[in-house]
């Protein structure tokens, strides 16, 4: 039964991912749509970060926000992304213990 669920989940996850390769060759996007598709990554990044980041420590949403602020500042100062990630982890760790 669990394998039926897994296969079903796999199918509905794969289908949305693999339709675009079969259709992009046949459609010519108008200019605005091209712009839209290029803006999608930045929109997705925004939507993925907020408000989700407040659930890192569900009962203390400010901890996620502080860790996010640390990440913003360090990234702004051109710190390497791996150090940005590690610093945010440390921030949450320090604030929770």
């Amino acid at each position: 039964m669990i394998w039926v669920i897994i296969i079903g989940m796999a199918l509905v996850t794969i289908i949305p991912r693999i339709i675009p390769p079969f259709i992009v060759d046949y459609i010519r996007f108008p200019k605005w749509m091209n712009k839209w598709l290029q803006a999608i990554p930045y929109a997705a990044l925004g939507a993925l970060v907020f408000p989700g980041i407040m659930t890192v420590v569900p009962e203390k949403p400010y901890i996620g926000l502080i860790a996010g602020a640390v990440a913003i500042i360090l990234a702004w100062l051109r710190v390497h992304i791996i150090l940005v990630v590690l610093s945010s982890i440390m921030t949450v760790l320090v604030l929770t213990i």
Binding site: Y42, G46, L48, V49, G68, A71, L74, S88
Partner: peptide, 29 residues
């Protein structure tokens, strides 16, 4: 928090290069 920090770390350099990108992300948020 790691993946959130990574998303921020990806987004900020793009915004620094071209500030208007921030509008897109903030609207999405």
């Amino acid at each position: 928090v790691a993946l959130y920090a990574m998303f921020i770390g990806l987004l900020i350099p793009s915004i620094k290069k071209y500030h208007r990108i921030a509008v897109i992300s903030i609207v999405a948020m």
